[in-house]
Simulated assay, not measured.
Amino acid sequence: MKAAVDQDRCVGSGQCVLMAPDVFGQRDEDGIVVLRNEFPPVELYDDVRQAARVCPALAIELDES
């Protein structure tokens, strides 16, 4: 799995950080998402998928090919 984020779409809700804190973080100044791990380990796949599903701005893209 490869994760990507679109910081321009992000609204800073922080839901991704709650779901997968080892993969997603937030900038201190404005709460916009930062990607901590572009290639998360297999054991985090379910959490990363959930983070993408709950993102209100649809700012997370996953490539599972």
Rank of each mutant, 00 (worst) to 15 (best):
D8Y: 03
Y45V: 11
G31T: 00
Q7V: 08
M1V: 15
E29P: 09
Q15M: 12
L58E: 15
E61S: 15
M1H: 13
R53D: 12
F39M: 14
R9I: 05
L35G: 04
L62N: 04
M19Y: 11
I32H: 00
C10Y: 02
M1R: 12
V42G: 14
D46R: 12
P41S: 06
G25V: 00
S13W: 12
Q7G: 06
Q50D: 12
V54A: 03
G12V: 06
Q15P: 10
V5I: 11
V48K: 02
P41W: 03
K2W: 07
D28R: 11
D6M: 02
R27L: 07
S13A: 12
E29L: 14
V11T: 10
L62S: 06
Y45E: 13
V42Q: 15
A3P: 08
V23C: 00
Y45K: 13
E43R: 12
P56Q: 09
L18D: 13
V42F: 14
E38D: 06
E29G: 12
L44Y: 08
L35T: 01
R9W: 10
L62D: 05
K2N: 11
D46P: 09
L62I: 10
V33D: 03
Q26N: 04
A51D: 10
D47E: 13
V11I: 12
D47N: 11
R36L: 10
D6R: 03
S65R: 14
E61H: 13
L62Q: 04
V23R: 02
F39K: 15
R27I: 00
G12Y: 06
K2Y: 07
P40H: 04
C10I: 05
D47Q: 13
D22W: 06
D30R: 06
V33R: 02
R36V: 00
P41K: 07
Q26D: 04
L58G: 15
V34W: 01
V48M: 03
Q7L: 02
Q15L: 11
G12I: 05
Q26M: 07
C55N: 07
V54I: 11
V42C: 11
N37M: 09
P56A: 08
A4H: 09
P21R: 07
K2Q: 13
F24Q: 06
P21W: 04
V54M: 06
D46F: 05
A20S: 09
G31L: 00
D28W: 08
L62C: 06
P40L: 04
D28V: 15
V42P: 15
V48F: 01
